[in-house]
Design a protein around this nucleic acid. Structure first.
Lengths: 182, 182
DNA sequence: GTCTATATCACGATAGAC
DNA sequence: GTCTATCGTGATATAGAC
């Protein structure tokens, strides 16, 4: 946060690498060695910025919080409306936010009992709360809002698990139009 | 498969322990030591039945295939209808099948690139295909069937990730009744 | 079929030079 | 702020006794 330029700091490069490894290879692949190597930094260099793996996770989650607030704001004012915006962003578009979200979901599941896992879950719960509020406000119907959110979760799950189907988004739009939600 | 009695074989006890550890602690907790210990067998005993961790995963997936075929059969003839049956079984009821499914989902996500991950994904894809066929046949509408399936995926994702909401199932039923799907 | 070693290796983390 | 070198631990897997 010291410069406004486009050059990414070592710190951000490390977090980027961590997220990418988590997304593509799961938590077992996201070792400190692998992160350092992918970011083209030595392990010692990594551990200067993040003294432990916990700190790496914490740094990642902190970045997500910032991006999450911006995402909710965009959702509110999206031209296509909040519902379609939500659905569109529930499939992995390859954006940095999606990458970070998938990485967080991996942490949440791969360490169900650990403190890091709990923090990742808290982060996701907060994001989901923000999205739900916009959906419920826009739709004026909690049941419908919750259903839309679950559909988004389903789209996310399929992407994350590698089960995604091509036409799913169109099928959902079709159904939601019948409900007057789109 | 030698006896029809109720006493569980060592083999099955090991698979049970593996699934439980995967569900409760993620793949990092499901080590060979932990599995052997939880099943009250020595590590050598485990490795007699499953010479490698890969074999443990393969054994688990094989059991899922059997249970999956039985589940689809029950779904077809369920008194409450296939849709509600599908939704009910999309939240973790604590059944052996749910436990196995959650375990498979963890493997699929924690080793996205590895052969085991691919096999887990194949298993899940096959199960989903079975469920989808019943839903589409019953509803006579691919878009609606795909939407119901995504809602089920969403319910599953929330459970798996520890994000589940109490009233989600009722909200969904409410919405699906409006669509004439329930 | 089940057990007790034990080999091998990779992971997270520390120490200290530059 | 970044590096190399190294320690301690815990994971998979092997060998061979019972």
């Amino acid at each position: 946060m010291t410069a406004a330029g486009t050059q990414t700091s070592t710190r951000d490069r490390l977090l980027d690498a961590f997220e990418t490894l988590l997304k593509d290879g799961g938590s077992r692949a996201a070792t400190l060695d692998a992160v350092a190597s992918a970011a083209e930094v030595s392990k010692g260099g990594l551990l200067y910025h993040f003294p432990s793996k916990d700190d790496l996770v914490a740094g990642m989650l902190a970045r997500i919080h910032e991006m999450g607030d911006a995402d909710v704001a965009r959702m509110r004012t999206a031209e296509c409306g909040p519902v379609d915006f939500y659905l569109q962003t529930s499939v992995d578009t390859g954006s940095p936010f999606d990458r970070a979200l998938i990485a967080a979901a991996r942490i949440a599941q791969e360490s169900p009992g650990s403190p890091e896992g709990q923090r990742a879950r808290d982060t996701m719960a907060r994001l989901r709360q923000g999205w739900f509020e916009v959906l419920a406000e826009h739709l004026g119907d909690d049941s419908l809002a919750r259903t839309v959110q679950l559909i988004g979760d389903g789209l996310y799950f399929d992407d994350i698990t590698g089960l995604a189907h091509g036409g799913s988004l169109d099928h959902v739009r079709d159904t939601l139009r019948r409900l007057g939600a789109l």
